[in-house]
């Protein structure tokens, strides 16, 4: 292959606008998982907030996605955060009751618990959100295939990306059509339950009809052959990334082991 060919193929790879984007997808994924697990295992306020403030936020600033990350995380965290606050505040058994609503008591312990769960959730959603905002899903899956993931599973993962928007579109169209025909998604529970099948049926059936034709179209392109493929482009990986991943993993294992065995005291 000529140099021009190599350059052409590499141009098919997704762009990497910042030095954080240029990290290998696998490194970024491992970082997100390690940060999330560490936040849960350490618990309390200090640990998760430290991970959030010292690891996730600087990386997001470096990647230039800080504002988008905040927006995505708020959208993803808000519904569950509201539940956490309402439920924990009112239902934790505790000695100090702040106020009472019906059979529910709001306790200081409840507020404390809700706070702890919230900081963990924020750390989790931003760590994973940062990975998502700085990594093209295709690049991640291709990188995993380069590392040994089967091409068939790689296909299943990337095809999902296409399938979801297509199905959402279908669900919207069908739902609108059924509302127009007077299908109830508001009324009594019995009515709503009856509404499940007419909605699920057409969405699922129309998607499944595609399976047969796509299967045959892939069969004629030798999809069923088992064995490795030579990928057209690869994601960059600096030489120090593999050692970095081992270090991350080792730190995580130490943290988990220390907390499980009680070697480290709980941090507030």
């Amino acid at each position: 292959m000529s140099e021009a060919d190599v350059a052409f193929l590499q141009r098919l790879a997704p762009p990497t606008p910042s030095s954080y984007h240029r990290l290998n997808p696998f490194t970024k994924a491992l970082a997100a998982v390690a940060e999330s697990i560490a936040a849960f295992v350490i618990g309390g306020y200090v640990g998760p907030l430290a991970i959030f403030g010292l690891a996730v936020l600087p990386a997001a600033a470096m990647a230039g996605v800080l504002r988008r990350l905040v927006r995505v995380s708020v959208v993803l965290t808000l519904p569950i955060a509201i539940s956490v606050v309402l439920i924990s505040v009112f239902t934790r058994a505790g000695s100090t009751v702040l106020f009472t609503v019906g059979p529910f008591d709001a306790t200081v312990e409840g507020v404390d618990f809700a706070g702890q769960v919230l900081v963990r959730l924020i750390t989790l959603s931003t760590a994973i959100g940062l990975f998502g905002l700085t990594t093209e899903p295709r690049a991640f899956v291709f990188d995993l295939e380069r590392r040994g993931l089967s091409p068939q599973l790689a296909f299943a993962a990337t095809a999902t990306l296409e399938a979801i928007p297509a199905m959402l579109e279908r669900a919207k169209v069908i739902q609108a059509a059924q509302r127009a025909r007077g299908l109830d998604t508001e009324g009594r529970i019995a009515d709503r339950l009856r509404g499940v099948l007419p909605l699920v049926g057409p969405v699922v059936l129309s998607s499944l009809t595609e399976v047969e034709e796509r299967t045959l179209a892939l069969e004629v392109r030798a999809f069923g052959r088992r064995g490795r493929r030579h990928l057209l482009w690869t994601m960059p990986e600096a030489t120090w990334e593999a050692p970095l991943r081992w270090v991350l993993l080792a730190v995580l294992v130490v943290i988990v082991a220390a907390r499980l065995t009680g070697a480290w005291p709980a941090i507030p």
């Binding site: 292959m1 295709r138 034709e213 392109r221 064995g227 990928l231 057209l232």
Partner: peptide
């Protein structure tokens, strides 16, 4: 439905078959 649904460019779409055959790049 004949497109694989997993490629970002026409070039990669057409290249999918040869890749599946395990051919060199």
């Amino acid at each position: 439905t004949q497109l694989s649904g997993v490629t970002a460019t026409v070039f990669e779409e057409v290249a999918l078959g040869p890749m599946n055959l395990g051919l060199p790049v």
